[in-house]
């Protein structure tokens, strides 16, 4: 079965993805609500994998819920918590359930999360996980053994266009593409002139690029990210703009900025789409999409049930 997300990437339309985060615990109400709000508004939604090394309900469980609710899930997989046996096994399970989009990540250090004494695995890295996926698709596991049954994934990875220094990051980016990445969701970009320069370089590679947009919720939040999040660089003028919002209206300003940036990315055809991260405020993603004027995108010609009925 061809992934709907892959069809969207190949259709030439401006692709929109977003995220949902599994809960701490088994109360899935909030995630359920977010999926309901987003499933017809975005082309696919990532389900995060113990984001920031905080132990949560698993991404594999989250993607099943998205699927069950009629959404198009992207399984985020980090290399932090599983060795190559467990990663391959989870990929087999995902494929057996019709989950066929995967985002491969190295994963944050356990020291950044809420189980600081845990063992970080990193048996594979993100590029090796991509290569493992391509190998599974050829019917072999990493041990060189034959697999029973065919599987196929739309596999992707991330890049940080604002990394400093940028050169080692770009070498890794190229290796991810060589290893089999079909799409790239970027870390948040705020300086679109810088992003254009990155795209001038990235255009030469056969990969679809979705510009990462993190919703700014306040000026202090923007300053916090500049100080604490690697590769995120909110320009002072945007921080000033956030600070200029009337009291209680910062969030509206953040939505306006995110919408404006996405609109510009799309109008200028900078890249193939956007990945919207509204960290904890996923219910606002439809507002960002409206602010970007993206509602006019025609829906995909085929849905899963159409394909299955053929």
């Amino acid at each position: 079965m061809v992934s709907l997300f892959k069809q969207a990437l190949e259709s030439g339309k401006f692709v929109v993805t977003s995220e949902v985060a599994p809960p701490k615990g088994i109360n899935l109400e909030k995630m359920h609500h977010h999926i309901e709000l987003l499933k017809d508004k975005v082309d696919a939604m990532n389900v995060t994998d113990h984001q920031s090394s905080v132990m949560r309900f698993p991404s594999l469980g989250g993607v099943l819920l998205v699927k069950e609710m009629g959404g198009e899930p992207i399984l985020q997989m980090t290399c932090r918590d599983r060795n190559r046996l467990a990663l391959q096994a989870d990929l087999l399970f995902a494929a057996s359930k019709g989950i066929n989009n995967v985002l491969c990540l190295t994963g944050d250090s356990v020291l950044l999360g809420d189980h600081e004494e845990a063992k970080g695995v990193f048996d594979l890295d993100s590029s090796q996980l991509l290569a493992a996926i391509r190998r599974l698709e050829k019917g072999k596991d990493l041990g060189g053994n034959d697999l029973d049954g065919r599987l196929a994934f739309c596999a992707g990875a991330i890049v940080t266009p604002e990394a400093n220094p940028i050169e080692p990051q770009l070498i890794k980016f190229e290796k991810k593409i060589e290893a089999g990445a079909e799409f790239i969701q970027t870390q948040a970009v705020y300086d679109l002139d810088n992003f254009k320069k990155f795209m001038d370089y990235a255009r030469q590679f056969p990969v679809k690029i979705l510009a990462g947009i993190i919703l700014l919720t306040s000026a202090p939040m923007a300053r916090f990210m500049n100080k604490n999040v690697a590769g995120v660089n909110v320009p002072q003028e945007l921080i000033d703009e956030m600070a200029s919002a009337p009291k209680g209206r910062a969030l509206e300003k953040g939505i306006e900025i995110a919408g404006r940036m996405i609109k510009r990315i799309r109008d200028e055809r900078m890249c193939d789409g956007t990945h919207i991260m509204a960290i904890g405020r996923e219910e606002l993603v439809p507002d960002i999409i409206s602010a970007a004027g993206l509602t006019s995108d025609p829906p995909l010609p085929l849905r899963h049930h159409d394909i299955e009925n053929k």
Binding site: R80, L105, T106, G107, D108, S109, G120, F122, D125, S126, S127, Q128, I158, T160, A163, N164, P168, Q169, I171, K172, K175, Q187, A230, G231
Partner: peptide
């Protein structure tokens, strides 16, 4: 820190 052999992770900073 992660023993990576294919280049830096996304956490590298300056």
């Amino acid at each position: 820190h992660k023993g990576l052999v294919n280049g830096p992770c996304g956490g590298t900073n300056n």
